[in-house]
Amino acid sequence: MKTFQYARADSAETAVQEAIAQGAKFIAGGTNLLDLMKLQVETPEKLVDITRLPLGEIEQREDGGLTIGALVPNSDLAADRRVIDGYEVLSRALLAGASGQLRNKATTAGNLLQRTRCYYFYDTASPCNKREPGSGCGAIGGFNRILAVLGTSESCIASHPSDMAVAMRALDATIVTLKSDGDRRRIAIGDFYRLPGNTPHIETALEPGELITAIELPAPVEGAKHLYRKVRDRASYAFALVSVAGVVKMDGDTIASAALAFGGLGTMPWRDAGVEAALVGQPATTATFEAAADALLADARGYGSNDFKIPLARRTLIASLRDLTGR
């Protein structure tokens, strides 16, 4: 591990001031950042420890929604009664990820910012445009079984690894931040992640030194059914090959509303308005589900060893929709 300067922040305002420094990064749970620092994939010159900031509470808002502090650990969030009752898809996604030890340490904001588990990103002897812009991509034409089939570019096919962020996309979460100039802003999760394009090292809309302080969820959808279905190589403690987060409400036999997001498939937690348009107002039939899968996978592209994800995604989506609609 390369050495670094360490600073413990005692307020969000001092944290963003400390983080103006060149090469500075925030550290909270550290479960992903320290792993990458040991391999020298990440080499921050300064770590700003934000663990003592008062950002660890979950609060019910007057509009019926929840405000989740950036530092709420994944395990506490998954077990929170308000989350279980109103946002079961979020509890299920969190519980499907990592291990008990990691969930105790990993934070809500940190989970949103997880880096890819692409082998070539981790291997500093390989080219990787995300780790070292302009160096090339080892994954295209390499071992890419776990990598993305949606949202890829000539520069990068790295998949986003988070389960939690997939549920957050289905729930229309909003990310609340504090910038180094003191401004606060609210970013819809649909605007938060960036497609790789020619700049795969830029993964989110965050500016240098900008701190996530909270994640807001809108009021729960009354009467909706929630599901998080994860397909992976082991029954526990493995990343998703394909996952589906769904919140669906029925009106008799007709799909009244649907929010669906996908993990393991995209270069970012994936959501496609075309999938939901194919479902809403339609009868819950296999033909409807097939049309939703067609919409999801119309632009999917396999790179050899990840080709299997395309039919797997179709089957996983259809099985999920059967559960969500009670077919």
Partner: peptide, 13 residues
């Protein structure tokens, strides 16, 4: 009181 991976956290914290 919470179980964690002690290899993935800095002593200084």
């Amino acid at each position: 009181g919470r179980r964690v991976n002690s290899c993935l956290t800095l002593a200084v914290m």
